[in-house]
Design a protein around this nucleic acid. Sequence first.
DNA 1: GCCAACGTTGGC
DNA 2: GCCAACGTTGGC
Length: 145
Amino acid sequence: MKSEPDVFSIDTLKKDKTTWWTGVRNYTARNNMQAMELGDMILFYHSNAEPSGVIGIAEVSKLAAPDQLQFDKKSEYYAEKATQEKPIWFCTEIKYKSKFDQLVSLDQIKHDPKLKNMALLKQGRLSVSPVSEAEFKHICKLGEK
DNA sequence: GCCAACGTTGGC
DNA sequence: GCCAACGTTGGC
């Protein structure tokens, strides 16, 4: 899961413990969240950062539920066509697990043969993308000294 | 259903 | 700030 650290960083998640991943307005990203199961592990990625990369780990703490911001007329994430009966946007709640000793940069990921098939690289702009167990473990190894 | 125009993400 | 790579919208 990607987040701009200026907006919501791993340190904010650490402080808040949990957060609903609201504001995702892309169908593929939404579908990926709806496919998540309780306890699934998440790579937390800082985008638009210096440098960008995976900075830590979170865990799915609540299954996907309607994103409440879609009903809020004052929110920038308001969705006119959404109703309580038929919500359009869903999000999971995630829980802080840990912050890496060292960030695993996008550049590292790009140049690591074990990570070259990551969905993250295939579709760079997607904010929620799937990760294989092998990729997950390998990135954890790189992030933890 | 096609496609042009437009908007967004995110690396650089 | 630029721009590539998408995704979305809406006219037809």
